[in-house]
Every structure is written in structure tokens, then in C-alpha cells.
Simulated scan of single mutants.
Amino acid sequence: MYTILVIVQVLVAVSLVGLILIQHGKGADAGAAFGSGASGTVFGSRGSANFLSRSTAWLATVFFVVSLALAYLVHGQRSASDSVVDRAAAAAPAPVVPAETNPAPASSALPAEEKKAPAVPE
């Protein structure tokens, strides 16, 4: 379904660009008034503007509908917690903390007299 929609999206986009490039702008009407041959077109003097405008509107509507459908399909495939930060945290290895290598605790090496707490003056 996704592949079909992408193919339709590309075809509609290319057709939409072609139709827009074929159309004449508003400035072309002034030249047509002086006999540039616009009345002898295939669709008549005003028929091409209506046909091309309507075709462009329909293709634009199809383009937006297919875009929304693709966005819905892509959004439905991801979970709510799927973000770039979550994926980076899951892929990063845990930091390695070196273990202490003391052979014996420091308190056992002291004489018995030093192990006592110092006297607190009153």
C-alpha cells in the first residue's frame, strides 16, 4: 500500500508541475488582446484556462489527500516513544567504571591506637 501511494504521489507531483508550467500567467492576457493567436487554441479562447485550472485543482487535491494518507501510514508504524534520543540511548554502551585495586583496606594497616576516635574537647 505504501509503495503504491508513493508512486501515485510522484506521478501526481510531476503532472502538477507540468500543468502549472503550461498555464499562462495573468500578464499573458494583455498580449492576447493584440492578436497573438490565443483565440485559435484547441480549447477556445477561455476554455484552456478553465480546463487547466480545474485540472490543476483536482491534481492538487489528490496530492494533498495522498500526502495525508502517507503521513498516516508512516505515523502508524512507529511507537509513541520512538525518538532519536531513545534510539541513541539504547544503542550507546554503558560506561565502564574501573574497579579499585586496593589489596587491603586502609584501616587494618593502622595500629590499634590510631583506630580510636580522637577525643573531643568539652
Rank of each mutant, 00 (worst) to 15 (best):
Gly18Leu: 14
Phe43Arg: 02
Gly35Arg: 08
Arg54Glu: 10
Thr56Trp: 09
Met1Ala: 04
Glu114His: 09
His24Glu: 11
Val74Met: 09
Arg87Trp: 14
Ala106Phe: 11
Ser15Asn: 01
Lys26His: 04
Tyr72Asn: 06
Glu114Gln: 12
Gly40Cys: 00
Ala91Trp: 15
Ala109Cys: 02
Ser36Lys: 15
Pro118Asn: 04
Val17Pro: 03
Val65Asn: 02
His75Arg: 10
His24Trp: 12
Phe34Leu: 09
His24Pro: 06
Glu113Asn: 09
Arg87Lys: 15
Ala32Gly: 15
Leu110Gln: 07
Ala32Asn: 14
Gln77Cys: 03
Gly47Glu: 06
Ser55Gln: 05
Gly35Ile: 07
His24Gly: 15
Arg46Glu: 11
Ser83Ala: 11
Ala94Met: 05
Arg78His: 14
Gly44Met: 03
Ala28Glu: 13
Glu122Ala: 13
Gly47Cys: 04
Ala13Asn: 05
Val74Thr: 05
Ile22Asp: 06
Gly18Asn: 07
Ile4Asp: 03
Gln23Thr: 02
Val74Gly: 00
Thr61Trp: 06
Leu19Ala: 03
Gly37Ala: 06
Ala57Asp: 12
Asp29His: 15
Ile20Gly: 13
Arg46Ala: 09
Ser79Gly: 15
Ala104Arg: 11
Leu19Ser: 13
Glu100Leu: 07
Leu11His: 09
Ala112Asp: 07
Ala69Lys: 07
Phe51Ala: 12
